[in-house]
């Protein structure tokens, strides 16, 4: 069962000037989010993440393509009862108190007054705003607004939670809390789809990720599939009491040698040379302290894709000028 399916989703915004072509924000984006998973939607600034999310919520109409949420077309009014949404930057009615604010969204979601009151209490506790419940939102700090926004998205206990950069504006404690919250949502069988440009968050909690660049999905899959865990990029070896200076063998194998007192750090470009180097350390009577393989991270993949996306553009431009 798939909770979010988009097929060939495109969106162009009118340029506002007659004769100038419209700006293509999304360019045939297809992705699938399965029920019960945490899906990270990753991309640099201006990649089209918010645009995608807005289409899913029916705030913006796609120029072409299709999107379905929970089996219904995106923008279907009744389905939104089962969806929670946190927009990019929290802009809310600042004349309401935290309590009134959540109550308003509970009632909008069709909850009874009794249930709303109970949920408001629960969520204020959950996001750590119990003390600020009677304070007006205009007096909230940025992080507090982010938290109340999150509470608003969860007030009606939705099956599908869509969050646009839920961790921005939060301190390290807050980030961890949000990560734990997202994980606990999955434990309760909810589906979470969130956008971010912070790779660390994605690597830590996502079941699957999609990387979007310039309105296209350039990669998607499980984090460990994407970064191919078996593909070790480099190996760091720390040892003691060996002489590296003038040692041709070590210098020919290593990309970097760092000597600090008796301790020595040697970086190898691949795991192939580990055996040879360890043999050399033994031969000298040195002591091996650690061997650390460095895997390709999501970050490497991200920069790799970003570099490709950037290099694609000038090619288009030049070919356009030539023809």
């Amino acid at each position: 069962m798939d909770d979010i399916v988009t097929e060939d989703l495109s969106k162009s915004y009118p340029s506002g000037w007659p004769g100038r072509p419209p700006f293509v924000a999304l360019d045939g984006l297809s992705l699938t989010v399965r029920r019960g998973e945490i899906f990270g939607f990753l991309g640099p600034n201006g990649a089209g993440k918010t645009t995608t999310l807005k289409i899913l919520l029916g705030l913006v109409r796609a120029t072409s393509g299709r999107a379905h949420l929970l089996g219904e077309p995106a923008g279907d009014v009744a389905t939104r009862r089962r969806i929670g949404f946190l927009p990019e930057s929290p802009y809310f009615y600042d004349y309401l108190t935290a309590e009134e604010f959540l109550g308003f969204y509970g009632e909008l979601a069709g909850l009874s007054r009794a249930v709303t009151t109970q949920r408001v209490d629960e969520l204020l506790q959950l996001v750590g705003l119990g003390e600020a419940r009677t304070r007006q939102l205009r007096k909230f700090s940025k992080g507090m607004l982010q938290r109340i926004g999150l509470a608003q998205a969860l007030i009606h206990d939705p099956e599908l939670v869509i969050l646009d950069e839920p961790m921005t504006g939060l301190d390290p404690v807050g980030r961890k809390q949000v990560r734990d919250l997202i994980l606990s949502l999955r434990d309760r069988g909810k589906t979470v789809f969130f956008s971010t440009h912070i790779l660390h968050d994605v690597e830590m909690i996502c079941d699957r990720v999609g990387i979007v660049m310039k309105g296209r999905l350039v990669a998607s899959g499980r984090v460990n599939e994407l970064v191919r865990q078996d593909h070790i990029q480099s190996v760091e070896i720390v040892c003691q009491h060996i002489k590296t200076e003038g040692n041709a063998l070590i210098h020919s194998l290593a990309t970097r040698v760092l000597q600090q007192g008796p301790q020595c750090l040697i970086v190898l470009p691949s795991p192939d040379a580990v055996d040879v180097l360890v043999g050399e350390i033994r031969r000298q009577g040195g002591r091996l302290l650690s061997v650390t393989p460095h895997k390709a991270s999501l970050e490497d993949l991200f920069f790799h894709e970003a570099a490709q996306a950037v290099s694609r553009v000038p090619a288009h431009v030049t070919s356009g000028r030539v023809s």
């Binding site: 009014v77 009862r81 802009y91 909008l108």
Partner: peptide, 14 residues
Amino acid sequence: ERRTIYTIMARPIS
């Protein structure tokens, strides 16, 4: 203009 509409229109209300 204040973008308060995002969360409202994401609710089950036409």
